[in-house]
């Protein structure tokens, strides 16, 4: 009995000390990690708007060159970002991938249906297959594709203006990414049009 108690005491003490360490480190780094994530998002939007920036000036350049617009989607506030010069609109896209969430940035031309740029911020797809979704060469295939009324990720050679080549060997990632793009677009398109008028 005494042995069991001493083991339990040890485990409890060890758990408390390590938890305290981690909580302390979290408190120290929490703000910086959030700031880094924000900077990554802002840099992808600036890339899509072709605005030059340096790592140190991302936030300033973003505030100066990007107009934030809040949209009300059934009571939920969604922020989209507009480039006053070209009229391009950037929005965050997110949804479930194969192994974890896929989060990215979708940028549309001023007609709100043509894709100007797609970037990935976070993904946990299979390395070498679905993970290729982050490759600039693959994402470049989305540029100029039109939501007509949906984007279709196809295994065949793209023939229509709304078709994109899927990633070979990553049907799961490709179809889920198609759903994420179409859901976000379907949700925001009427509001963006209303904004225009």
């Amino acid at each position: 009995m005494k042995r069991i108690l001493s083991i339990m005491g040890f485990v409890f003490a060890m758990g408390s000390i390590t938890s305290l360490l981690i909580i302390g480190m979290d408190a120290l780094t929490f703000e910086r990690i959030l700031a880094n994530e924000q900077a990554l998002f802002q840099s992808k939007v600036l890339d899509a708007f072709d605005v030059p920036y340096t790592t140190a000036t991302i936030n300033e350049v973003f505030i100066q060159n990007v107009e934030a617009i809040e949209l009300d989607v059934n009571g939920e506030t969604v922020t989209v970002y507009r480039d006053p010069k070209t009229g391009r609109i950037s929005m965050e896209i997110s949804g479930g991938g194969v192994w974890g969430p896929i989060i990215g940035v979708l940028t549309l031309e001023p007609d709100f249906v043509t894709i100007a740029n797609v970037a990935i911020l976070q993904q946990e797809e299979t390395p070498g297959l679905g993970g290729r979704i982050t490759e600039p060469a693959y994402l470049a295939k989305y540029i100029g594709v039109v939501f007509n009324p949906d984007v279709v990720v196809t295994k065949n050679i793209p023939s229509a203006d709304n078709e994109v080549d899927a990633i070979t060997g990553a049907t799961g990632t490709s179809t889920r990414f198609q759903i994420i793009l179409n859901d976000t677009h379907a949700k925001l398109f009427p509001l963006l049009q209303a904004l225009e008028n």
């Binding site: 040890f10 485990v11 060890m14 758990g15 390590t18 360490l21 981690i22 480190m25 979290d26 120290l28 780094t29 910086r32 990690i33 880094n36 990554l40």
Partner: peptide
């Protein structure tokens, strides 16, 4: 289990540190 708890705590510390200062 003791090793595991100690090791994973240190790994989480390193991970937080790198994400904060060397993203």
């Amino acid at each position: 289990i003791t090793y595991m708890v100690i090791i994973s705590s240190f790994v989480i510390l390193v991970q937080m540190f790198l994400e904060a200062f060397f993203p």
